[in-house]
Design a protein around this nucleic acid. Structure first.
Length: 421
RNA sequence: GUGGGUGUAGCUCAGUUGGUUAGAGCGCCGGAUUGUGGAUCCGGAGGUCGCGGGUUCGAAACCCGUCAUCCACCCCA
């Protein structure tokens, strides 16, 4: 019989990796909390309409990458492809805008997109993200960018680049698009097939095309940043000033266009050269219109999302492997020793002392081998001799020093001992 | 959706122009006299050579198909 395999692009995170993942998760949580963001836990599936309306129906995500299925009554549901839509939905549904603003949320969890798997790209992947609601002040943009930059720096990820751009207001873009379109139509012959299609659906994306000939053809294209309203221009300048003040290095990238429809004004992306083709580790921007689009009040917002697999990929290269270990190993053998050992294990564990044992081992030799392999710091030897004496031998596996301790009350004795980390 | 690479033991990989019973290292289990681990030595378990066809006296190897996986396009975190 064929064994059942996991789903394509859906990976197990095995015990060798989970300590590292926990460290990453703990780090991003700590940073978010220290900036005053509060954790929100939203469902991993929602009405399909939510994503179609927020992300944009013409985007690849909505067009061909969503895991969509009918509920039993026929309602179309979708596994979340990103976290912002659900967070905003929740914000509106619980009428959070009636509470004092601003409000700052963060989330962490799995997302789903039906894409072809690749280095740093999975069908189930994990994101950490923050959403800062209720402040249009550019310092809010600076704050979320700084948060992202600082926590990535804290993880000591190598060779990061922050790129930033302003997409202007939707009016700015509407005013700019004719200029861009007329420029692009002059260059049409030089553009790739994909870009021909983009010229109609989303001309801004042509600027972001990776094909070298397209890049060359758009080198002298009119820049959106030259067509910003004074408000948008000011906002952008203040964001940049803030970054300078904080010493967060950035690179202007007038070609940077985010894929999701809801972004406006500030748009940014952090990339690393250590990631292969999928080089964006985190990205975000402002989305002042989204809350209203989804049926809520007009509340400005700014946020980002961070790809945790991509963080993990880089983190592996810079951090040494971690492992969850038990402090003690109970080597119980012999008729009476085994009986006492079973009880001792329970006592130690109830006292919160991490303890291991291999029930297969019948000899002391086999036990010590297992203790060594499990990287325990101490072995508690408990054979028939000890059982009849009511004692145990505590063996330091590194120094090989041994001492005799009473079996009775051993947990409280060990509990008082402190060990170097 | 489109390309390209790779599928041999739990893991990393050898395997000659097609030739007998498919190998190594690591890992795992056991042993090297009584109740003391890591090292060494010895022994053992473990493989439908991804799967299905085909060519051949003979296929892990060659051909076709298929599946899986990786990388890239695309897209994005």
């Amino acid at each position: 019989m064929d064994s059942i395999k996991g789903i394509k692009g859906v990976k197990d995170i095995l015990p060798e990796e989970t300590p590292r993942w926990r460290l990453i998760e703990d780090t991003v949580r700590r940073w978010a909390l220290s900036y005053g963001y509060q954790e929100i836990r939203i469902p991993i599936f929602e009405l399909t309409a939510l994503f179609a309306r927020s992300i944009g129906s013409a985007t690849d995500i909505v067009e061909k990458e969503m895991y969509t299925f009918p509920d039993r009554d026929g309602t179309s549901l979708t596994l979340r492809p990103e976290g912002t839509a659900g967070t905003v939905r929740s914000f509106i549904e619980h009428n959070r805008a009636a509470d004092p603003l601003p409000q700052k949320y963060f989330y962490i969890g799995p997302m789903f997109r039906h894409e072809r798997p690749q280095a740093g790209r999975l069908r189930q992947f994990h994101q950490f993200g923050v959403e800062f609601f209720g402040t249009s002040d550019p310092r809010a943009d600076v704050e979320v960018i700084a948060l992202l930059w600082r926590l990535l720096s804290d993880l000591a990820l190598p060779d990061l680049t922050l790129e930033i751009n302003s997409l202007g207001s939707s009016d700015d873009r509407a005013a700019y698009k004719p200029f861009l379109r007329s420029f692009l139509s002059q260059q049409q012959a030089l553009l790739c097939e994909n870009c021909h299609r983009r010229m109609d659906t989303n001309p801004l994306r042509v600027l972001d095309c990776k094909v070298p000939s397209c890049r060359a053809a758009t080198e002298s294209a009119p820049r959106l940043t030259d067509h910003l309203s004074t408000e948008a221009r000011q906002h952008f300048d203040q964001v940049l000033c803030g970054l300078v003040a904080l010493g967060v290095p950035y690179q202007l990238n007038p070609r940077l266009v985010r894929g999701l429809d809801y972004y406006c004004l500030t748009s940014f992306e952090i990339t690393s050269t250590h990631l292969g083709a999928q080089n964006a580790v985190g990205a975000g921007g402002r989305y002042d219109g989204l809350v209203k689009t989804l049926g809520g009040p007009s509340v400005p917002a700014v946020g980002f999302a961070l790809g945790l697999e991509r963080v993990s990929l880089m983190f592996q290269k810079t951090s040494s492997p971690l492992r969850d270990e038990c402090l003690y190993y109970v080597a119980a053998f012999g008729e009476e020793g085994k009986k006492c050992g079973l009880v001792l294990l329970d006592e130690l564990r109830r006292a919160g002392i991490s303890t291991q044992c291999d029930y297969r081992a019948t000899t002391l030799k086999a036990h010590l081998r297992q203790a060594d392999r499990a990287k325990c710091r101490y072995a508690i030897l408990l054979g028939d001799d000890e059982a009849s004496l009511g004692s145990v031998i505590l063996r330091n596996l590194e120094s090989k020093a041994q001492e005799v301790l009473p079996l009775e009350g051993l947990a409280s004795i060990l509990k008082t001992r402190t060990f170097p980390a």
